Computed example of a mutant assay.
Amino acid sequence: MNFNLNEAIEILEQTPKTLESYLANLSQGWMTSSEGEGTWNPVEVIDHLIECEKHNFIPRLQFILEAGEGEAFPPFDRFAHLNQSEERTLGERFSEFQTLRTENIAKLKELVDSDEVLEKTGSHPALGTVKVRELVSTWAVHDLTHISQITRVLAERYRKDVGPWVEFLGVLK
């Protein structure tokens, strides 16, 4: 196994800065592009990541440490961010994401203070028994998944414009 808590934290710490650097100065056309109906644009991905900071990984970690496998932790609504009507700037979103992530990494470091904690188990409502180590690994890979998703979405915007070069552009396959 490759999991290392400090390495996972490296990814978690970099994600807000990476996304802000990548997206902050892009035009509206880039920020509202998607891969089609039922997919998310970059702003919606940021909103989803903010929801995850509030209601997913740290709350589930705390639930595992308190309840163990005795009770399944509450399900997470992966689409809750789509029901928000609050208008915020991209800068406000990045600021909120960075603040929440910084707080959550501090909580993670406080809660997972030994290798033994990483092996504690809880009950996922759909997946069954899961370990803290698996939850934290998933959190880091979840970030990487959404960075990849945003890259795909941006590339998709120019799919028709690249003409025959599409065959050489793996992101468009």
Rank of each mutant, 00 (worst) to 15 (best):
N4E: 10
N6A: 05
E7W: 04
E7D: 15
A8N: 02
E10D: 15
L12F: 05
L12C: 00
Q14S: 10
P16W: 09
K17I: 11
L19F: 00
E20W: 02
S21R: 09
Y22H: 10
Y22P: 00
L23Y: 09
N25M: 01
N25T: 12
N25C: 02
L26S: 06
Q28D: 14
W30M: 04
W30L: 00
M31H: 04
T32M: 06
T32S: 15
S33I: 03
S33C: 12
S34I: 03
G38D: 04
W40S: 13
W40D: 07
N41H: 15
N41T: 07
V45Q: 01
D47W: 05
H48L: 11
I50Y: 05
I50H: 04
E51N: 09
E51A: 13
E51H: 13
K54G: 07
N56M: 13
F57K: 00
I58E: 03
P59M: 07
P59R: 08
R60A: 01
Q62P: 01
Q62Y: 02
F63P: 00
E66D: 10
E66I: 04
A67T: 11
E71L: 11
P75E: 10
F76K: 08
F76G: 14
D77R: 02
R78T: 11
H81M: 10
E86W: 00
R88I: 01
G91Y: 08
E92F: 02
R93C: 10
F94W: 04
F97W: 14
Q98L: 14
Q98K: 15
T99W: 13
L100G: 11
E103S: 12
N104R: 02
N104V: 06
K107E: 11
K107Q: 06
L108H: 03
E110P: 00
L111H: 06
L111K: 07
E116S: 14
E116Q: 10
V117A: 04
L118A: 11
E119N: 12
E119P: 00
T121D: 05
G122H: 09
G122T: 03
G122E: 05
P125H: 04
G128I: 05
T129S: 11
V130M: 11
V130L: 10
V130Q: 13
K131N: 05
V132E: 11
V132W: 03
S137A: 09
T138G: 14
A140G: 09
V141L: 12
H142E: 14
D143T: 13
D143E: 12
L144Y: 13
T145F: 07
H146N: 09
H146E: 10
I147P: 00
S148D: 09
S148R: 15
I150R: 02
I150A: 00
A155W: 02
E156L: 13
R157T: 05
R157G: 01
R157E: 06
R159V: 14
R159S: 12
K160V: 06
D161A: 14
G163Q: 06
V166N: 13
V166F: 06
E167A: 12
F168H: 14
L169D: 15
L169H: 09
L169G: 08
V171K: 08
